[in-house]
Amino acid sequence: MELAFIIEKFALILVIFVISLTIAAYSTLAERKIAGFLQDRVGPNRAGPGGMFQPLADGLKMFFKEEIIPTESSTALFILGPSLALFTSFLGSAVIPWGQDVEIAGRMVSLQITDINVGMLYIFGVVSLGVYGIMIGGWASNNKFSLMGAVRAASQNISYEIPMGLSIIALLMSTNTLSMKEIAEQQHGINWNIFYQPLGFLIFLVCSFAETNRTPFDLPECETELVGGYHTEYSGFKMGAYMFAEYLNMFLASAVMSTLYFGGYNYPGMDWVNEMAGSVIGPFIGMGVLILKIFAFIFLFMWVRWTVPRFRYDQLMNLGWKILIPLAIANIVITGIVITIFEKL
């Protein structure tokens, strides 16, 4: 392994880490601003111009609050819970292709941390790992409501992983690869997968709402029934870690959906722009486009949160097992038939 490779990857990891942190921090502000907009009020506007420094103020508050660890709980696991939740939500962005290759000083630098050939499954695995943070934290709190929230999170996660996986299988059948980079490359220009897999995208979208525990599927922290759900006993920075993990998961889910279905860094007329801007600036414009798409999805997440009320638990399970799974299987069958017909023609 040469030095330039290590430096390049290290810089990329650092940049993506900082970008995800910033976006997650400002998502908290955006959430409150959008809530304010949808409810016809102003939202936070005191800290800095237009409330720009609100995330900083919130972060400081989280740091300086008292950390309470319940006496009857298992301390190590109580700390492990939020740490694991935060840790796993950072892992997924490693396989997202952020742009086309850039040529810097005669080297082709890939704007993707690693291109493993099972990239899509890797994301799937990381998502399924994420619920352990909630599960461990909820169990270690030694509180009925926390445990209820944690059990809900786990069963919800298990249920919605199945339609999510099935909708990915239909996508695989049309792309013929598991590598995120190749999937992004295939959608050059406006050849996006959403036009081939509209139903698959819809199922994936609903499932990602459930996997990130966002409204209307935020039953693990349903405050009308469970006080605060799995994080009832958490305070200070540990509570902040759970909240941050949720926003990071939302960011990751948006990035995955943009890459799988909405072309990732591709946009119509990109060849022309790349020709005009050169081989260094061009890919970064693509990266900017991807981030814009991610913002659009994050806005969708928030829009839904402040529009749709929470599901009841049995409704959630019915939707997952009796509607989404049959739909996803039907989608696979239809995709198979269509592909066979087009190959015969």
Binding site: V118, F124, G125, S128, M135, N157, I158
Partner: peptide
């Protein structure tokens, strides 16, 4: 590796 990761960890859940 990745299937072991997904299936077994899901199963342990």
């Amino acid at each position: 590796a990745i299937v072991n990761f997904i299936v077994y960890m899901g199963a342990i859940m």
